[in-house]
């Protein structure tokens, strides 16, 4: 007879297996796109050439060649222009069989994932995000959930390889290295702020993960467009099918904007809780230091992308650095430094 806690661990292994299958399927899908140069992309590239290098996007792409029209018949013409400049590269991401499998298996994995988290919560009798193992488990869940929900609205399935890869890796590492038995928590953690503060922090981490995947793809695509010899081979030709670097920048920004607001809320709610539990709202505990660093890096990112000479590639590097800080804050800070945020051994 397995306990509820053990059931949660089994479900977590099942989740990791599902994500691993999805990862393979996403990768096969990408490999199936090698060497396919879509007509739409050529058009989009040609249209984008005058403005290449700038990250400013889309809304003001005004083609002077398009004759101004004043009659009602303008609709179809304008539609054609828009379709050529923006929409088609996204639409060109056709649904292959592996891709359909990948998305279905991801949804299945997400269901298992949710079950693993819920059973964990029952086994521990509290919100299931109070130690490192649980942070990683729930963080990976939010990353996959954000990815899967967003891909129902926007065509971002090309990010599947990166996101499902990160999620698989996270769960396997968590199960092997950081697993602890489900248990209650000490008095300092018995607060609804555990649900709010930690829950929002983990959600923000999941969101930053998806944005990170978008920015990495943006950097790769941009390098390939710029003719980087490392990315010139056929192996990387799937990059021709993903949205333009400018569109990816925009996608990353939208997701990061949500993540940044949530991270701000993480800091503020953490301060409220610290004021009650520790008698100070801010004390430069290592976790607080790194949460602050993350906040400042993403704030710098938001400023960089509107600063001349810093938008585009450079701004994307801020996302990479910021996400590295997020991961370090999640794991390294607990393992390397001792502070008030160390609980349950790690």
């Amino acid at each position: 007879m397995t306990t509820v806690g053990e059931m949660s661990d089994l479900l977590a292994w099942g989740t990791a297996s599902a994500y691993a299958i999805a990862l393979v399927a996403f990768a096969i899908d990408l490999s199936g796109r090698l060497g396919v140069r879509s007509v739409a992309r050529e058009k989009a590239l040609a249209a984008a050439t005058p403005a290449s290098g700038a990250s400013t996007v889309a809304t003001d792409v005004v083609d002077p060649a398009v004759r101004d029209t004043t009659s009602a018949g303008a609709v179809s013409e304008a539609t054609a222009r828009r379709a050529a400049s923006l929409t088609s590269p996204w639409k060109a991401w056709s649904v292959s069989k592996p891709l359909a499998i990948a998305v279905s298996v991801s949804w299945m994995g997400l269901a298992l994932h949710l079950a693993a988290i819920v059973t964990r919560g029952f086994a521990a009798g509290r919100a299931p995000w109070a130690n490192l193992y649980e942070f990683i488990l729930v963080g990976a869940f939010f990353a996959m959930a954000v990815f899967l929900v967003v891909q129902t609205r926007w065509e971002i399935r090309f990010l599947g390889t990166i996101v499902s890869g990160l999620a698989t890796l996270a769960i396997v590492v968590a199960l092997n290295a950081f697993h602890v038995e489900a248990a209650g928590v000490q008095p300092a953690l018995q607060s609804y702020w555990l649900v709010i503060h930690v829950g929002i922090a983990v959600l923000a981490t999941g969101i930053f993960t998806v944005a990170f995947a978008a920015s990495v793809t943006q950097l790769l695509r941009d390098s390939r467009d710029e003719g980087s010899p490392m990315l010139a081979s056929r192996r990387w030709s799937w990059l021709d099918q993903v949205p333009t670097a400018a569109q990816l920048e925009l996608l990353s920004f939208r997701i990061n904007a949500v993540g940044f607001v949530l991270w701000t809320f993480t800091l503020v709610s953490g301060s409220v809780w610290a004021e009650d539990a520790w008698g100070r709202y801010w004390g430069w505990d290592p976790k607080e230091v790194w949460s602050f660093v993350i906040w400042v890096v993403y704030a710098a990112y938001l400023h960089a992308r509107t600063t001349r000479g810093w938008s585009g590639r450079r701004a994307a590097w801020f996302v990479v650095v910021g996400y590295a800080c997020v991961l370090f804050n999640f794991t390294g800070v607990n393992m390397l430094f001792s502070g008030k945020h160390s609980y349950s051994g790690v």
């Binding site: 290592p286 230091v289 660093v293 400042v296 400023h303 600063t307 001349r308």
Partner: peptide, 24 residues
């Protein structure tokens, strides 16, 4: 200018790090 604000933000992030590695 935005450029200097950006520079200061980056400096602030870097300057905060030693406080987590060296005892305070």
């Amino acid at each position: 200018s935005m450029r200097v604000a950006l520079l200061l933000l980056m400096l602030l992030a870097v300057a905060a790090v030693p406080g987590s590695t060296i005892p305070q």
